[in-house]
Design a protein around this nucleic acid. Sequence first.
DNA 1: AATTATACCTAGATTAATTAGGTTAGATTA
DNA 2: TAATCTAACCTAATTAATCTAGGTATAATT
Lengths: 106, 106
Amino acid sequence: MITKEMTSAVSNIMVLSVLKSGMSYGYQLLRKIKQDSNELFDWTEGMLYPVLHRLEKQKYIESIWGTSEAGRRRKYYQITSSGQDYLAELLDGWYSISEVLIGLED
Amino acid sequence: MITKEMTSAVSNIMVLSVLKSGMSYGYQLLRKIKQDSNELFDWTEGMLYPVLHRLEKQKYIESIWGTSEAGRRRKYYQITSSGQDYLAELLDGWYSISEVLIGLED
DNA sequence: AATTATACCTAGATTAATTAGGTTAGATTA
DNA sequence: TAATCTAACCTAATTAATCTAGGTATAATT
């Protein structure tokens, strides 16, 4: 079971991880996150946009407005270097907890 | 870095995991959790007791009042069988997320 | 006598997620 | 051409949770 607390704990990690492999925009991120997580995560827009806005305010990602081939406006996000550092720290924390949990299972 | 969201996501898991290896009481749980996590978690009582009360309300743990050798009152907690099932589900969720994160790192 | 350690508890401020909306515009179908 | 679907963005507000900062009581130690 994926609890909402777990979702909350990885939301930043997921967004930063996906952005690490290239720029993306909100609508596409939703599909990528669903796909890259083997449908484990199927977020709504109302879940993603607040995360994006918070990460941007914290300077872990930055955005520019662009246009799709079809002419629709899009806000592209890319990870900053401080965002990459932050991602590494978050992953480190996640994995160290995982090790503790594994250690407790004996 | 351990974020508070991560802490929140594992608080139930940690308490249930420690209780799985035997009964314990609040004050001792705090020390066990600190010790078993290699000091990764150093919770305050204000963090633990609400978790215990919630888990008890959900019937994942149950409590009885007892007395220490020294004569102090203690509330002992033990995990229920539905708590063991719940713990297994939580661990399953945690590990499946971990696998997604590992997959994203390439 | 005073302090530390043991052992429990809760109120309330803050913070965050999620539901449930809303807007605009291009593409498709009836 | 009207209607619907998909793309693409956004926020308000309810709900729920953490955590700080308290509080009580008693045994042991200095």
